[in-house]
């Protein structure tokens, strides 16, 4: 696996795996993340996977040796780690279904997205719910997925002025991207619906429903199904 290493300050090291965002880079980031999860090197504090990089935060005191800078020691540790990894060790991606109740109060901007693309609202829903999506990265907010794979046909610009609060679990479109807001937050995305499924559960062992590499399917549900789902969830 080709990569370059560079410092991010005095307690982190960045592994750059690719110069551009693509499926292969994504797979490599996942393989490396998996490896770090399994090995949990004692000098590692944590790591952050992104589109084309994995940044490892380390403890300089754990890595300190006479005449060797902690950064150099981290570099050596990482070289050793990387030599044991092959891209084949990537598992099959999971597919997560996200039910969405489109339009109405849940998706106040569905009409706008339809008009902007000269489509009917039903056509927007069809296109959005039939796409094959993958999660490139979790970031921006807890459990927030950067999702690739949306059709250009339903692309829409961000709102001119962002909403001060967007309810949690809202599904939106911004430019060529679609996403789901795990927690209530301000934001400028066009809202087309809402999912009853929780994306962020702080008390769970794995607080984020999604992780980088997951495949996503959006499935249209009715308002009744939405309400049923919320009532029958554990919280």
């Amino acid at each position: 696996m080709d990569y370059t290493i560079s410092p991010l300050g005095d307690q982190a090291i960045v592994l750059t795996i690719s110069k551009e965002i693509n499926e292969e880079a994504q797979r490599k980031v996942q393989v490396l993340s998996k490896q770090l999860d399994e090995q949990q090197p004692d000098w590692m504090i944590e790591y952050i996977p992104a589109f084309t990089t994995v940044t490892i935060f380390y403890s300089p005191t754990m890595l300190a040796q006479e005449d060797v800078l902690p950064y150099q020691a981290a570099e050596m540790e990482i070289e050793q780690l990387m030599s044991s990894i092959t891209i084949e060790t990537a598992g099959e991606p999971r597919t997560i279904e996200i039910p969405v109740c489109y339009g109405g109060d849940f998706g106040p901007d569905l009409e706008f997205v339809a008009e902007h693309n000269s489509l009917s609202t039903d056509e927007v829903i069809d296109i959005h719910s039939s796409g094959d999506y993958s999660v490139y990265m979790i970031g921006f907010a807890p459990g927030f997925p950067f999702i690739g794979g949306m059709s250009k046909k339903i692309a829409a610009p961000r709102r001119d002025s962002p909403r001060l609060t967007i309810p949690e679990r809202s599904v939106g479109i911004a430019g060529m991207q679609t996403g789901v807001y795990p927690i209530e937050t301000p934001g400028g995305w066009q809202l087309i619906g809402r999912t009853p499924k929780k994306l962020f559960t702080p008390e769970a062992d794995t607080p984020s429903l999604l992780r980088a590499g997951d495949k996503i399917k959006f499935k249209q549900i009715s308002e009744e199904e939405y309400i049923n789902w919320e009532e029958h969830s554990d919280d």
């Binding site: 944590e46 790591y47 952050i48 807890p142 459990g143 927030f144 607080p207 992780r211």
Partner: peptide
Amino acid sequence: RTGYQKYGVI
């Protein structure tokens, strides 16, 4: 809260 940044948790 270290260890959870990979889930987007600050």
